[in-house]
């Protein structure tokens, strides 16, 4: 690779028992791959919190790679299934925020798949190279995108998304408290709506942390219809996260009353 070529920065979260072991085996077998990845070991892919992944993007990484055990192989029985659903949600959030979802990749890598790990490590940086540097990296990260990713991060920290994504597997596969199961399609649709709404709400709150804004102003800033914004405003007021700040003329202005979330 030439000096000037873009060298993607990739952070990898690998589970101790399968994919980290697979990465070790790539080493033992001397399968070569480009040195873009910085691996962080976790005990289980289920440990990977969506908001930590989003945090990595705010830090300017160009790609995040997540490795877990193949279905059925999880050392902790089902952590990888949890991870699968969480990462799916995270990709949706990344996409909503306006960053390419391809920058987040999850793969099952077994302890015996050293060669496969190396192949993935050749492929993924190439894929990222084609996408170019993350707009959040470098000296001047894209401000709007940063605001979006931060909103996505807050959405991932929010009670609602966390609660539902964690229960997805149980509800789709075993049934809810009423012993009803939802089909995967029904669930996906429900999830999609929830992600969209939570993301928009966090985005909205992000805009009014310091200065109050009207529904109209918010609508033009976030690029959403005013009635949608109004729905969110009503909802957030009920949740006690937003308050009426003032009324200018006939235009109410709202301000966030959520304490600054430490993340």
């Amino acid at each position: 690779m030439a000096e000037t070529e873009f060298e993607p920065k990739i952070v990898g979260f690998l589970c101790n028992w399968c994919s980290y072991a697979g990465a070790d085996l790539a080493g033992v077998s001397r399968f070569q791959y480009p040195p873009n990845i910085r691996i962080i070991r976790v005990m289980c892919s289920g440990r990977i919190d969506p908001y930590i992944v989003l945090e990595a993007f705010t830090q300017g990484v160009d790609g995040v790679f997540i490795g877990g055990c193949h279905p059925g192989d999880c050392h902790y029985l089902e952590g990888n299934y949890q991870a699968e659903r969480k990462i799916k949600m995270t990709r949706q959030l990344v996409k909503k925020a306006g960053l390419e979802p391809e920058r987040l990749r999850m793969e099952w890598v077994a302890a015996s798949e050293g060669e496969r790990f190396a192949i993935l490590m050749r492929e993924f940086p190439k894929q990222i190279q084609e996408l170019g540097p993350s707009p959040l990296s470098g000296e001047k990260p894209d401000e709007k995108l940063m605001a979006n990713i931060n909103a996505a991060k807050l959405a991932a920290l929010d009670f609602r998304l966390r609660a539902i994504v964690s229960k997805e597997r149980k509800i789709v596969e075993q049934g809810n408290v009423y012993n009803e199961t939802k089909s995967q399609e029904e669930w996906d649709e429900f999830m999609e709506d929830a992600i969209e709404a939570e993301f928009e709400r966090k985005r909205l709150l992000g805009l009014i942390t310091e200065k109050p804004m009207s529904v109209k102003e918010l609508a033009s800033e976030i690029d959403l219809p005013t009635d949608r914004i109004l729905d969110h405003v009503v909802f957030l007021r009920k949740r006690n996260q937003l308050a009426l700040d003032s009324i200018e003329g006939f235009t109410p202005k709202y301000i966030s009353i959520v304490p600054e979330v430490k993340a």
Binding site: F13, I40, V42, M43, C44, G46, R47, I48, D49, P50, I52, H75, Y76, G79, Q82, A83, K86, L157, D158, F159, R160, R162, A163, V165, S166
Partner: peptide, 23 residues
């Protein structure tokens, strides 16, 4: 395994040796 920490809606659960701060 830490799956509870990644799932807790309130972020009340954490996993020692692999805390959010550390990661």
């Amino acid at each position: 395994c830490g799956t509870c920490a990644a799932s807790c809606p309130e972020k009340a659960a954490s996993i020692k040796q692999f805390t959010d701060e550390q990661l």
